[in-house]
Simulated assay, not measured.
Amino acid sequence: MAPVVEPFFDSTTSTFSYVIHSGIGSQCAVIDSVLGYKANSGKTNTDVVDKILVFIEQMKLNVDWILETHIHADHLSAATYIRSKVGGRIAVSQQVTQVIHSFSKLFNVSESDDELVANFDYLFDQDEEFTIGSIQCKALYSPGHTPADIAYVVAEKMIFVGDTLFMPDVGTARCDFPGGSAETLYASIRRILAYPEDTQLMMCHDYPPATRTHQSVTTVAEQRKHNIHINDKVDETAFISARNSRDKTLDSPQLLFPSVQVNIRAGEFPKAESNGLQYLKIPLNFL
Rank of each mutant, 00 (worst) to 15 (best):
119 N>D: 07
32 D>Y: 06
142 S>F: 07
43 K>Y: 15
122 Y>W: 01
173 A>F: 13
274 S>I: 13
146 T>E: 14
39 A>F: 00
133 G>W: 12
103 F>T: 05
92 V>E: 02
49 V>H: 01
101 H>V: 04
61 L>H: 07
11 S>Y: 10
77 S>W: 00
148 A>T: 04
211 T>M: 11
148 A>W: 01
255 L>I: 01
118 A>K: 11
231 N>R: 12
263 N>W: 03
30 V>A: 08
40 N>Y: 10
205 H>C: 13
206 D>M: 11
2 A>D: 11
228 I>R: 10
214 H>V: 15
144 G>S: 09
209 P>N: 14
172 T>M: 10
244 N>P: 02
283 P>F: 03
113 D>Y: 03
242 A>K: 14
274 S>Q: 14
185 L>C: 08
22 S>G: 08
112 S>K: 00
23 G>E: 08
285 N>L: 14
153 V>M: 12
237 T>P: 00
147 P>R: 10
62 N>W: 12
44 T>R: 06
42 G>F: 10
24 I>Y: 11
38 K>A: 09
128 E>M: 06
185 L>G: 07
63 V>Y: 04
270 P>C: 05
261 Q>G: 04
36 G>W: 07
229 H>E: 13
204 C>T: 15
3 P>A: 13
229 H>S: 14
265 R>Q: 01
158 M>P: 09
267 G>M: 05
184 T>G: 09
47 D>W: 12
178 P>L: 07
219 T>S: 10
278 Q>G: 02
178 P>H: 08
197 E>T: 04
94 Q>E: 14
286 F>V: 01
23 G>V: 04
251 D>Y: 10
185 L>M: 10
81 Y>D: 00
213 T>M: 12
150 I>S: 03
183 E>M: 10
7 P>M: 09
34 V>F: 06
64 D>G: 04
168 P>F: 09
160 F>L: 12
277 L>Y: 14
273 E>R: 15
267 G>Y: 06
205 H>F: 10
54 V>H: 12
64 D>L: 06
112 S>D: 05
55 F>Q: 07
181 S>M: 11
237 T>K: 15
123 L>N: 03
150 I>G: 06
25 G>E: 04
87 G>T: 06
62 N>T: 08
276 G>L: 11
199 T>K: 10
258 P>R: 04
252 S>L: 11
116 L>R: 07
266 A>M: 03
24 I>T: 12
44 T>C: 09
128 E>T: 00
98 Q>I: 09
53 L>Q: 01
253 P>G: 08
178 P>R: 12
36 G>V: 02
15 T>Q: 10
222 E>L: 11
101 H>L: 03
135 I>R: 12
268 E>D: 06
238 A>N: 14
28 C>G: 08
86 V>D: 02
257 F>E: 04
194 A>L: 03
79 A>V: 00
9 F>G: 05
124 F>C: 00
22 S>A: 11
232 D>M: 14
163 D>L: 05
223 Q>I: 05
73 A>M: 07
10 D>L: 08
260 V>L: 07
86 V>G: 06
161 V>W: 06
148 A>E: 05
171 G>N: 05
114 D>Y: 09
107 F>H: 00
204 C>H: 15
237 T>N: 14
170 V>R: 15
106 L>Y: 09
104 S>H: 07
108 N>H: 08
246 R>A: 12
26 S>G: 11
182 A>W: 13
